[in-house]
Design a protein around this nucleic acid. Structure first.
Lengths: 112, 112
DNA sequence: AGATATAACCTAGCGTCACTAGGTATATGG
DNA sequence: CCATATACCTAGTGACGCTAGGTTATATCT
């Protein structure tokens, strides 16, 4: 599974991760690795810019949190716009994966 | 369904299209549109460079065909290397779509 | 005859984006 | 003291789908 595949899908994965609850960047990376069972082991240089992009686009909001121990964390939360976007992107993914499946999943009946 | 999604998947779609039989570039475009039921309506500037790329990589071979009427066509055929690559890429797609599904298909049981 | 449309090919340049590689700061365990 | 893990950041690179423009050939409509 090469890295190029993720292009255009990373944002959706991040939004879906934060749908389960707010989290800081590093935790997002770990949660994506966990839920994907290791299929998505994303470097920070991939995720941090994506988070900034999504905040700039208004789909996420962030708050700096200073814990008693350890360094500052930036906690991201899905905005209402982000929730709406996620819903639309789910439909986009459904159409996309269905279409690709026609070509790459020949065992399925719809592969005409 | 935005265009960025296709990145890293177009090659696989093309290989799978030519698995059904050799075809020239323009026909590949039409066949992809047909099989995807219009989801993939790809411009020539997307498909032709991809075909050249795949031939350069040894996954496709091409022959110029001069018909009685009309202009010359370049007919592409899957090479043995291409067939093997397609098989691997099918597995890559299976893993990828499973992993994304965890995030974007919450109705499915595996979405833990 | 001229205009338009479709089939069929091509490529230079653009923008997006995941990734590499490097940096900073805080805490813990050997 | 040094390595490891946590936690953040960004400049630059490379890959690639797409835009926009071009060429050649046949058919159709005015």
């Amino acid at each position: 599974m090469n890295a190029e595949m993720l292009k255009g899908h990373l944002d959706n994965v991040i939004l879906a991760t934060l749908e389960q609850g707010s989290a800081h960047g590093y935790a997002v990376i770990e949660e994506i690795r966990r839920r994907s069972r290791g299929s998505f082991n994303l470097p920070e240089g991939t995720v941090y810019p994506a988070l900034h992009r999504l905040e700039l686009a208004g789909l996420l909001a962030s708050d700096w949190v200073t814990p008693d121990a350890g360094r500052r964390k930036r906690v991201y939360t899905l905005t209402p716009t982000g929730k709406k976007a996620l819903k639309e992107r789910r439909e986009g993914w459904a159409e996309f994966s269905r279409a690709v499946g026609v070509f790459l999943e020949p065992d399925k009946p719809w592969a005409a």
